[in-house]
């Protein structure tokens, strides 16, 4: 199928699905009223801003943590490798909600940390670090061993081999999954509402209870999340295509 045709088919289908959804909502007999919601737009704006800020700080923290996790898991020293494995197992084996509550109720008081923003963001970062670390590790391990040997055979040190030969190749392959992690983290940040951090989903809850217009309040928040995640996933797809790993080159069912 040509590219132009594919875009057209996709556009038509999107309009049809969204249209059907809207039609169903309108036909449900529910009295839609977005005016009270509009009154509280300030809460949404604040919520969106805080969602972006917490996700941003969390992702940056996660990238740094991920580098250490990957280095640890690829280390030649067993104890270091084991610590890396342990971190990943613990973080991936427990729900983020539980990690957040532990951070908020157990760890933060011990450290005298009070800012919900920082507690939430760092918890997101620690969480993301395990997943991002795995992306880094998989990326590095995906580089053929022959590349490493070729560089070493030319007299490049281990460090230079990593920097000039292995990392540049690994990095290209990491970009699409790293974008995926950012999208996942944006959604994960909605859990910060349980510590009463006034991010987007907390805002929706507040608007809902103040206006008693739950449908509208949550519909708006869903659309706001999509305005963040859809451009990101489009970006991811573009990067993927540019890196020549088009999804279409695979097997079709």
């Amino acid at each position: 199928m040509s590219r132009g045709r594919e875009v057209l088919v996709r556009a038509v289908l999107t309009v049809a699905v969204v249209g059907a959804f809207v039609a169903a909502l309108l036909a449900s007999g529910y009295q839609w009223d977005f005016r009270p919601i509009w009154k509280y737009r300030g809460l949404y704006v604040e919520g969106l801003w805080k969602t972006l800020a917490a996700t941003g700080v969390g992702y940056a923290t996660g990238l740094v943590a991920g580098v250490f996790v990957a280095l640890a898991r690829l280390s030649r020293t067993l104890p270091v490798r084991h610590l890396g494995d342990l971190y990943v197992e613990i973080i991936r084996g427990t729900p983020f909600l539980v990690q957040l509550l532990v951070a908020y109720f157990c760890i933060a008081p011990l450290l005298g940390l009070e800012s919900k923003f920082w507690i939430g963001s760092i918890a997101l970062g620690v969480f993301a670090g395990a997943y991002i670390g795995e992306v880094f590790r998989a990326g590095i391990e995906s580089v053929d061993r022959g590349q490493f040997e070729a560089a070493r055979s030319l007299g490049l040190s281990r460090r230079r081999t990593m920097r000039h030969v292995v990392f540049p190749q690994a990095f290209k392959r990491m970009i699409p999954p790293l974008t995926g992690e950012l999208i996942a983290l944006t959604k994960e940040s909605s859990l910060l509402y349980v510590i009463a951090f006034t991010e987007l989903s907390f805002a929706a809850k507040q608007v809902s209870s103040r206006t008693i217009k739950s449908f509208e309040a949550y519909l708006v928040v869903a659309v706001l999340y999509l305005t963040v995640t859809i451009p990101l996933s489009m970006l991811a797809r573009r990067l993927e295509r540019r890196l020549g790993q088009s999804a279409r080159s695979g097997v079709e069912l």
């Binding site: 590349q147 055979s153 190749q169 290209k172």
Partner: peptide, 16 residues
């Protein structure tokens, strides 16, 4: 290693 050149079976050229 810098003083011994090596050509590998699959050449292992740097693709980037």
């Amino acid at each position: 290693r810098a003083e011994v050149g090596m050509v590998f079976q699959h050449f292992n050229l740097f693709p980037h």
